[in-house]
Amino acid sequence: MNTDADHPRLSAHFRMQWEEAQQAWVLLYPEGMVKLNASAAEILKRCDGSRDVPALVAELERTFEATGLEAEVRAFLDMARQQRWVADT
């Protein structure tokens, strides 16, 4: 489950890359692709297993000079775990 001890990271079988032709970040996996919107991409870029969720939220809020992002980040991570894009370490 989504606890503060979790350090989300991109699952090994997914690859994230910038696609010039689509002007978007995409997630690639066996025979498939997901086009990411800008906020999904910013969250996933930071899912490298090095930070827990509060640290991830804090970094996003600092970078984008925003507040109150936690609910959105947690909702996205829940979905991303369900899709198995993200695992926790």
Binding site: E19, E20, A21, Q22, V26, L28, E31, G32, M33
Partner: peptide
């Protein structure tokens, strides 16, 4: 170059 990204 056109934007193909999945290659089978």
């Amino acid at each position: 170059a056109l934007g193909s990204v999945q290659c089978g």
